[in-house]
Amino acid sequence: MVTQVTSFGRSGLSDWLLQRFTAVILLAYFVFIVGFMICNPAMSFDTWKGLFDTTWMAAFTSLTLFAVVAHAWIGLWSVSTDYMTTRTMGDKATVIRMTFQATYSLILFYYLVWGFKILWS
């Protein structure tokens, strides 16, 4: 069995399923936000803040944040293991790929913490 310690779920099937689950959450969130903006054409900061002050919206947004992190991790991992390989770049590929993966994992973690801070503080 081909394994990859850096893959998200360590299994092709779980990654694949997760990618689709998170895509549905992202789509639902996107549709909701767009719908909300259309329904409130003259939106003020207060309406916007009011929305996010509700617990359910904070929970929905948190879920979406998790979804973004998982979705991006799996997607970018896929991209990096497609193009940043020894076949395409030679020996330096592993170092480049690990650096790339470390960088975007830090960025994703940062976004997650930042988002939580905004939502729950």
Binding site: M1, V2, Q4, S7, S11, G12, L13
Partner: peptide, 12 residues
């Protein structure tokens, strides 16, 4: 099936 359930074999 167990042999195929990794991120590369099928899911690429």
């Amino acid at each position: 099936l167990a042999d195929l359930d990794d991120p590369f074999s099928v899911f690429r």
